[in-house]
Computed example of a mutant assay.
Amino acid sequence: MACRDVGEEARSRHRRPEVPPAGAAHVRDRRVTGVLQVRYFAGARAAAGGVHEESIGATSLDDLATVLVERHGERLAVVLKAASFLVDGLACHDRRAALPAGATVDILPPFAGG
């Protein structure tokens, strides 16, 4: 007998059971909402009541804006309309694009000067 317990069948130890692949999740499905780290800068921080950073569940920038306005009020809504968003350090202009779970979103209000 080679390396088997008594009564153990001869089978591959590394075989995975047949599991069908998962289908693509719909972006609007709230059950697949990713948790994002949101960081506020300058006027956005002031409009959010001084919060520097928080975790939010959202699937897109539009979805994120809705959640943030519900949480912090209309003052932040005004800032978000003119703000720039960085997703993991890269500018994101499409507010309907799907956001990766675990991403860091920086909210940058327009700055004065030139």
Rank of each mutant, 00 (worst) to 15 (best):
L76A: 07
P17Q: 09
V38G: 03
I107A: 06
G43M: 03
E70M: 09
R4S: 00
V19A: 05
V78E: 13
A48G: 04
D5W: 00
R16P: 12
V19K: 10
D88H: 13
A101T: 05
L90R: 15
A10N: 14
D29C: 15
E8M: 09
D106I: 07
L68N: 02
A65E: 09
A98K: 03
G50I: 02
K81V: 09
T33D: 14
K81S: 13
R75L: 05
V32H: 15
R31M: 04
R13F: 15
A77H: 05
R4N: 00
A47I: 00
D5I: 03
A98Q: 08
G23V: 13
I107F: 11
D88A: 09
A91N: 15
R16H: 15
G57T: 04
V78L: 08
L61Q: 06
E18Q: 14
D63I: 01
I56G: 01
R15N: 15
S60R: 11
A112F: 08
H14C: 11
A82E: 15
Q37T: 13
L64W: 12
A22C: 09
I107R: 01
P21H: 05
R15D: 15
V79W: 00
V51N: 01
A48S: 08
A2K: 07
P109C: 11
A42H: 06
R4Y: 00
E8C: 05
F85Q: 01
A58E: 03
R15A: 13
C92D: 07
I107C: 05
D94P: 07
L76V: 06
G89F: 03
R30Y: 04
V32G: 14
V38F: 07
L76W: 00
A58D: 04
T59R: 09
A58P: 01
P110F: 11
L80S: 03
L108R: 14
A98P: 10
V87H: 02
F111K: 02
Q37V: 12
A24W: 07
R39V: 12
G114M: 15
V35E: 11
G73S: 03
D94K: 10
D5P: 11
R15H: 13
G49T: 07
E9N: 11
L86M: 12
G113C: 03
T33V: 12
R75F: 00
D62M: 03
R16A: 13
H14V: 02
A91F: 06
L61A: 02
V27Y: 07
D88E: 10
G73N: 02
L61P: 00
P110Y: 04
R95D: 01
D5H: 11
E53M: 08
